[in-house]
């Protein structure tokens, strides 16, 4: 059996890479993908801890996270398409309508 902490460290690494992607990249699609990666990293730690404590509640939470991620992707990509239709760009630096 692989120790639970190894899964958690892998999860932390994936989450960190996702965070770096959100902070560094300026393309809205790549940022979206990084957010998905972070959600998946959290899911991995849920799964590992569910096994560690032999508690299925963690897996239920994973299911809920997946539902939220699916809804988020559907709405988010629709917003991306709306932004592209209005501004013709995917760079978030160019989307500054709310800036005073």
């Amino acid at each position: 059996m692989v120790p639970t902490s190894y899964f958690l460290i892998l999860s932390a690494l994936l989450f960190t890479i996702g965070t770096l992607g959100v902070l560094v990249r300026r393309n809205v699609l790549i940022i979206f993908m990084s957010v998905e990666m972070m959600l998946n990293a959290v899911n991995l730690s849920f799964a590992a801890l569910a096994r560690h404590f032999l508690d299925l509640n963690g897996q239920i939470f994973m299911l809920m996270v997946m539902v939220v991620a699916a809804a988020e992707v559907a709405v988010g990509l629709a917003i991306v398409m709306a932004v592209i239709r209005n501004k013709d760009t995917t760079n978030i630096e160019d989307v500054n309508l709310l800036k005073g």
Binding site: T4, S5, L8, A12, T16
Partner: peptide, 21 residues
């Protein structure tokens, strides 16, 4: 990002989760 990684890694490696069930 690296700071987050170090903090999380230190917290996990010093914790109680090294045993496998």
């Amino acid at each position: 990002g690296l700071g987050l990684l170090v903090a999380v890694g230190y917290g996990l490696l010093s914790g109680q989760l090294m045993t496998a069930t």
